[in-house]
């Protein structure tokens, strides 16, 4: 279970105007602006639920994921995941979660994928039997047989993403955070990834928190969505209820766009 209560977080950003004069001036003096990345957000995700976490760029999605995975400490608020505070009991906590960053890779670039997997096995101290079972299952479900022996740098984006997802699940985490897992993928790879996540959730009751800009991801995977904008939770409800509010809208994208307009984000 993921419990988030009144969590806030802010950052400092430097500003400068254009031109030579301004450039010279900023040698001595720089202006900073405080950006409120998260402003008292709260939500609760019970075990086994799949939730879509959406919002425009810079809304605070990644900060939330970082806080939930123990990389970032919030200024205020409480987070409890399966009874642990992520940033206080980091090592115990991360053993139980899997994280996929769509824009970054965790595979070692120059070695075959399977070697990266074996190293992860040792890092997480996964017992042999469990590792072999997981590997077999993931290989079958994500169709990895052909690519396990290829160095990561030679994989296509879709192949790599399938490997990334497998890499995050080798230690059988109970919770999976997916940060834009389908970004840049072709239609076939997208469907394969979605299909896999659905099966995973069904079979293992893995809790999934998914951020994405692809509304079809949401439609396929999440019954519940949380909308965040300018660091605040604007909406938290089921997708079907939301659809009823917009009976005339034809596509999900249009619906989300009008939601963004409604909240001026």
């Amino acid at each position: 279970m993921i419990q988030v209560e009144n969590v806030s977080k802010s950052f400092r950003v430097a500003k400068r105007n254009a031109g030579l004069k301004e450039a010279v001036k900023s040698l001595w003096y720089r202006k900073y602006e405080v950006v409120q990345a998260l402003d008292r957000i709260s939500f609760l995700i019970p075990e086994g639920e799949m939730v879509g976490y959406i919002g425009p760029n810079g809304a605070g999605k990644s900060s939330t994921i970082k806080i939930l995975s123990g990389i970032l400490t919030p200024e205020e608020g409480l987070v409890s995941i399966n009874g642990r505070i992520p940033w206080k009991q980091r090592k115990e906590h991360v053993r139980e979660i899997g994280v996929v960053f769509g824009q970054r890779t965790q595979l070692w670039w120059d070695v075959p994928v399977i070697d990266s997997f074996c190293l992860l096995k040792d890092i997480y101290a996964v017992p042999n039997i469990e590792f072999n079972n997981n590997l077999e299952e993931l290989t079958a479900l994500l169709h990895l047989e052909e690519i396990l022996r290829t160095p990561a740098r030679q994989l296509s984006l879709g192949q790599r993403m399938r490997c990334e997802i497998a890499a995050s699940l080798l230690h059988s985490p109970k919770i999976l955070f997916l940060d834009e897992p389908t970004i840049g993928l072709d239609a076939v790879s997208k469907l394969a990834v979605r299909d896999f996540i659905l099966k995973l959730n069904e079979a293992k009751k893995t809790t999934v928190l998914l951020t994405t800009h692809d509304m079809q991801d949401i439609e396929a995977l999440a019954k519940r969505i949380i909308l965040i904008g300018k660091g605040r939770i604007l909406l938290d409800g089921s997708l079907s209820e939301l659809k009823e509010q917009f009976p005339n809208r034809e596509s999900l994208d249009e619906m989300i766009a009008s939601l963004y307009r409604r909240y001026q984000i």
Binding site: R16, G19, L20, A23, V24, S26, L27
Partner: peptide, 8 residues
């Protein structure tokens, strides 16, 4: 030049 002198 301008870009360069930013790296104070």
């Amino acid at each position: 030049f301008i870009a360069g002198i930013q790296y104070r």
